[in-house]
Amino acid sequence: MTTPVLSVRDLVVQFPTRRGTLTAVDRISFDIAPGEVVGVVGESGAGKSMTGAAVIGLLEPPGRIAGGEIWLKGERIDNLAPEAMRQIRGKRIGMVFQDPLTSLNPLYTVGEQLMETIQTHTRLTSAQARARAIDLLTEVGIPAPDKRIDAYPHQFSGGMRQRVVLALALCAEPELVIADEPTTALDVSVQAQIITLLKNLCKEHGTAVMLITHDMGVIAETADRVAVMYAGRIAEIGPVQDVIKRARHPYTEGLMGSIPSLDATADRLVQIPGSMPRLTAIPQGCAFNPRCPKVFARCLTERPEPMPVGATEVACWLYADGAEKAA
C-alpha cells in the first residue's frame, strides 16, 4: 500500500479555559490516500473544523494540539516550526473556507491575490505568475479570465468568488485540499456546480481532499470514504456506500434516518432524542451513551475504540467481538 498523503494518529485538540481544559478533538485517527476524497461529517461542534485547522496548523489560540501526530506523505508536520509550517500551507496543503464572500481581501484584485500566492510558493516572475493565474481562472471556469483577472472580489458573484477561492487553494498544486464546508454559504443551485468543480479539479491533479461538511448529499456524491464525528471522536469511518447504506454505529443510523428520501415515503423523519453533549459535559464511556437506543452497561464505563467491521471501522461496543450483533 502506498504512503497515505495524510495520516492522523490519536490527535487531541484542547482549549485551556478558565473553567478547565476543553477537549474539542479527542484521540482521532484516520488516513487519506493519494487522490482520495474523504468526507468528514457531524453536527456543529463535533470537532470537524478543528481537525481541519489542526492539520493545516491554523488552530486559533488558545487552541492547541495536545497530543497525537500528523504525518504528511511520511513527514511529521504537527511539531514543525511556524515558518516551516507556513511553507507547507498553500504549497502542499490547500484550504477552502466556508464563506467565499469574505475569504478574499476586498482591496486587491483577484489577480493580485492569485499572483501573491503563486509567487509565495514558486520562483515565477510576475509575468509568468500572471499567465499562470489566467490559466487557473480558466480552469475553474471563470469566463473571460484575461479581463476578469483585474477585477476586484466585489465584482464577482458568490459562486464565481468561490471558484476564485478554489483557484487560490489549488494554485501551487497541493497534495491535499481541506475544504471546510465549501458550499454552505452558497445558493443551492450553485452548490452542485462548485462541488462538481472541486471533485473534477482534484481528480485531474490527483489531489486528495478532506471534505468537511454536514451535507450528507454532498458526501454521498463526492466522497470515497467518510468519517462520522461525534463529540470530538470518530464514531464510524469507512467506504461511503457502506456507511450510508449500512450504517453500523447507532449514531450514524440515526443520522441517516434523519435524511429525507425522494423514493421512500415516510410520515416522520427519524430523530435522535437529546442533543450532542457540550464539551464540558462529555459522559464517561461512549460519548453517545445518553442518547443511544442500544446502550448497555459497558458503554457507560469504557470508551470504545474503532473496531473493524467489514470494510468500515466502528467505535461501538456492539461490535466488540467482530460479529454484527446489532444487524
Binding site: L58, G90, S103, T117, A169, A172
Partner: peptide, 9 residues
Amino acid sequence: KFARARGVP
C-alpha cells in the same frame, strides 16, 4: 485567515 491558509508570510 485565508491568506494564512495560502501560506502568505
